[in-house]
Design a protein around this nucleic acid. Structure first.
Lengths: 349, 349
DNA sequence: CGCGCTTCTGCAATCGTTTGCAGAATTCGC
DNA sequence: GCGAATTCTGCAAACGATTGCAGAAGCGCG
């Protein structure tokens, strides 16, 4: 008496390895070995093809769940981004995806919405799915993310944002240098009073760019303490607008080096609302060179970071960490470059 | 002799339900019941708290793998998008995510890169992870996606794009009507010779907008066969530029209704290269009102689709399909609206 | 005090795969 | 042609949860 009901409907329930074994007249374990490329060599060719045919015939598909349960691996990588709507991230994610796909890993991306709780929840969820590794683009001060990953022993790399004490590899942009490029550009144009619109203080890119700003100003022979600085409380257009408004109240500058393109867009808004023209009246530099900032009005002078390189290198580091868990952390610092467009100009005489 | 090595290091391996059971002095099955909200009522309160404490103490986290293996559910939803770099999708995905999160579902998004093979691979992968449902924003002619989902019996909804014969619910935009809005606007401005830059022919949005274009032209008392039409072969800036160049060779129009904002950006490029000013010389309308098109130069007149609504409603439909698999397919058609900016103007006298 | 009825809890099978071990089959050398 | 060395293949025990079933308490009531 058959255990399964006949179920010879058009859609059989779902073939298991046992079904294949029965069809091929071998033991399930043999099927497993025949179908797994790594162990394929352990079985006779004749058996292997017979099994392969049976599997094909029955439309067998491996259950990652069951396999993962046993092997504790899933050939899947999780990517956590703070905000998918921010156009900086998709290119990074995409580059990582193609690199990982080459190595046979699928990627799952999750949005943390800049919310540490959601981030923790997502990490747990990813861990529950037994991801083989995690790429965190969402690192921020006060997040327990890296701690969770460490405790769960999930190979992890940080992208774009660093985290002070973390023992994980990171591939980031040279933010201090990038900001120096912006400042040097503005100084070369003749600006002497330059404001800085900084990012939220818990995020490494924000603090690095801020400190880079001060160093660069000093290097240019100017006094950083004379430069107005205002921090936005998120990397959003809205936050940029607010911060810029407060900066305008302070006054005393002819240019503003902004920590991020999204913030720069907000700055555009605030400047426009104050009746100032970006470029002629006050110069603005952004940071990231995210998609579309070359087409906005006026086109944004900004610091281009190597999005694709960042995603790709991070993927490589992660793959290395997975296959060779003992390797010590390695950091990669990518060099940005200045892209001059029309949001910057010489100050009025 | 203990089966597990002492491993009283700082990081115990990972508590299982059996460990919790031992600590609480009950049977594993009791732990399972106590910890699962649905079955929590089956055990005494005293036991439940004891178990909960033990679990907390040991840092127990459920293994979705193991649970899923048994229950065939994962409380996870997969979202497939054709191209994350296209800014239309992130807002839709985001809206879906919040709705699903409310219902206790986590989301995993995957990029198909407009590649049917990658799409199929991702669906298999998601199925392997036992996603409870799938949202497909990547539907295109010739894709086996829906067929796969049907065969695997995965509850599925289509977002943004329809698929002719599919038996799945879909929430889409009223593309024909949207295009009519654009045409009516151009006609009202005085245009009589209007070109259409269409999208790739395998995608429902492209064919609906194209047929909507012809209907609207006819409704305006003009002859659709006199209007130049050119299809791009992908929804990208580059494809838009190419198609626009070919349209310019044809000539004979004062305005062009473009099927998608990304294509419209390409059209901007081609027009600019030809020495024509968008707006004064030739009017351009886009479609989608994706982020940032309000800030480009000139700001794009376009058709706004309800991104958030779309993601949210699709999520709702999917949840319904999951809890009530028998419900028949229901389609939701969202109404777009015209947003007039500066890329359209009256034709020169 | 005993019986029947509830309410809890434990038992054991199950989900679909992988893998160490051992036995069977084959090959090879002499 | 026989024993040893080498392949293959089968067995069964995991992996970590869930759940139908049945036995054990706990309870009320006559």
């Amino acid at each position: 008496m058959p255990r399964r009901p006949p179920a010879l409907s058009v859609e059989p329930p779902r073939a298991t390895i046992a079904d294949v074994a029965r069809a091929a007249g071998v033991h399930p374990s043999t099927v497993s070995r025949a179908l797994n490329p790594d162990t394929r060599a352990m079985v006779t060719d004749a058996v292997a093809v017979r099994v392969a045919e049976a599997a094909e015939q029955l439309g067998w598909r491996p259950s990652m769940l069951a396999a993962g349960l046993r092997t504790r691996r899933s050939r899947t990588i999780g990517i956590l981004v703070p905000d998918l709507v921010n156009p900086v991230f998709p290119p990074i994610v995409h580059a990582a995806e193609v690199r990982l796909a080459e190595a046979g890993y699928a990627t799952l991306v999750a949005n943390t919405d800049n919310d540490p709780d959601r981030e923790a929840m997502m990490i747990e969820r990813m861990a529950g799915h037994l991801v083989d590794g995690l790429m965190l683009a969402s690192a921020a001060k006060g997040s327990q993310a890296v701690d969770l990953c460490r405790r769960r022993r999930i190979p992890t790399v940080l992208i774009n944002r660093r985290l002070p004490g973390a023992e994980f590899s990171a591939v980031t942009n040279d933010d201090r240098h990038g900001m120096a490029l912006a400042v040097e550009h503005l100084v070369a144009l003749g600006h002497r009073r330059i404001a800085h619109l900084a990012g939220p203080s818990g995020i490494s890119t924000a603090v690095d760019r801020r400190s880079g700003f001060r160093s660069a100003v000093r290097a240019a022979g100017l006094d950083p303490d004379l430069m107005p600085i205002m921090a936005a409380d998120a990397y959003t257009i809205e936050a940029g607008r607010c911060a810029m408004e407060r900066l305008l109240e302070l006054g005393g500058f002819t240019a503003v080096a902004v920590a991020n393109d999204l913030l720069a867009l907000g700055a555009y808004d605030a400047l426009g609302a104050a009746g100032l023209r970006v470029g002629p009246d006050v110069s603005v530099t952004g940071f990231n060179d995210m998609p579309f900032v070359d087409r906005i009005s006026p086109p944004l002078t900004t610091i281009r970071i190597q999005h694709a390189e960042m995603g790709g290198r991070a993927a490589g580091l992660l793959l290395a960490a997975i296959t060779e868990p003992a390797t010590s952390r390695t950091d990669i610092l990518l060099q940005p470059k200045l892209v001059v467009r029309h949001s910057t100009a010489a100050p009025e005489a």
